[in-house]
């Protein structure tokens, strides 16, 4: 499924998690090379500002205008209510996805027949564009929070299911055998061998699930068009207010990075035993 703990945030590769493959040699970066990333970001920001100033059209406001707008929105507090709604939706949806995803994933990983029965459907749901379910939820629940939460759950559950199932299934047989050799029962094997060894890959799924949950939240809210940050984006879009659209998008990106960062911290705590070289 997924593959190395990507350097920054999002990307994961299995080889580095299981650590079975030789650790890729990372050439040491010279000092100035380390600076290339930030410099490139800075250059992008300057270019944005300059082009925005030069064009002077409402659809492409300069960076300063966007940040100014974001400051205003935060200062006068209008955005905070929407932010709170969005974050609440996200928290509920992601929590439900976690419970669902982990349970189903462990079941599929442990019981071969459950996996055989459900794997294609889980894969189908993973590849399906989840937002198509939004109109269905909307007909059922209208503007209720459940509509958004439902979209978030659909966005984030299935990647967690698949990674968890895969992780549980691929727990090292030699360790399971070792435990059996000392007379361990199923519960001991699951609790002390399978789940710990599955944790890195499970957390990779959880991290992807978190990123997807944020997308589900925004996309769902944009579909419903009147609640949360997504609603603000839609309203601003209708009013041709690009400054607000970009300001809110900036906020959403910060939110997304924060969520991923939180999951990453949790991941590091749960998998502190992984050798540092396997994180790269």
């Amino acid at each position: 499924m997924t593959t190395s703990r990507g350097s920054k945030a999002v990307v994961q590769t299995t080889e580095a998690i299981t650590g079975t493959q030789p650790v890729r040699r990372r050439a040491r970066l010279r000092g100035w090379e380390r600076a290339v990333g930030p410099v490139s970001l800075l250059a992008g920001a300057i270019a944005w500002e300059a082009i925005g100033q030069a064009l002077d059209v409402s659809v492409f406001p300069p960076l300063s205008a966007v940040l100014g707008r974001l400051g205003e929105l935060l200062a006068d507090g209008t955005i905070l209510g929407y932010l709170a709604t969005s974050v609440t939706n996200l928290a509920i949806g992601f929590a439900v996805a976690l419970v669902f995803g982990l349970t189903l994933g462990v079941l599929m990983g442990v019981y071969r027949r459950v996996e055989m029965a459900l794997d294609i459907y889980v894969r189908a749901m993973l590849t399906a564009p989840s937002l198509v379910f939004a109109p269905i939820f909307f007909t059922l629940f209208g503007l209720d929070r459940i509509t958004i939460v439902g979209v978030i759950v659909l966005y984030s559950t299935f990647i967690i299911v698949l990674n968890t199932a895969e992780a549980v299934k691929t727990a090292p047989r030699s360790l399971v055998e070792m435990a059996r050799c000392y007379g361990a029962g199923d519960r001991f094997v699951l609790r002390r061998v399978i789940l710990p060894s599955a944790t890195p890959l499970i957390m990779a799924g959880v991290r992807l699930g978190a990123g997807r949950a944020v997308k589900g939240m925004i996309n769902g809210e944009m579909f419903v068009a009147v609640v949360g940050l997504g609603g603000v984006v839609m309203t601003a879009g209708r009013n041709f207010d690009a400054e607000t659209v970009l300001a809110v998008m900036t906020l959403i990106i910060v939110l997304a990075f924060m969520v991923v960062w939180l999951v990453e911290r949790l991941d590091r705590r749960l998998t502190a035993w992984l050798p540092e070289t396997n994180r790269a």
Partner: peptide
């Protein structure tokens, strides 16, 4: 399996998340 017959594995089969002490005591 019986604890009367203990096994030593070619690939060691140690729990990577457990300390030496916990591994020996398992």
């Amino acid at each position: 399996p019986s604890p009367e017959r203990a096994m030593v594995f070619q690939n060691f089969a140690l729990l990577p998340w457990s300390t030496v002490l916990a591994n020996v005591a398992i």
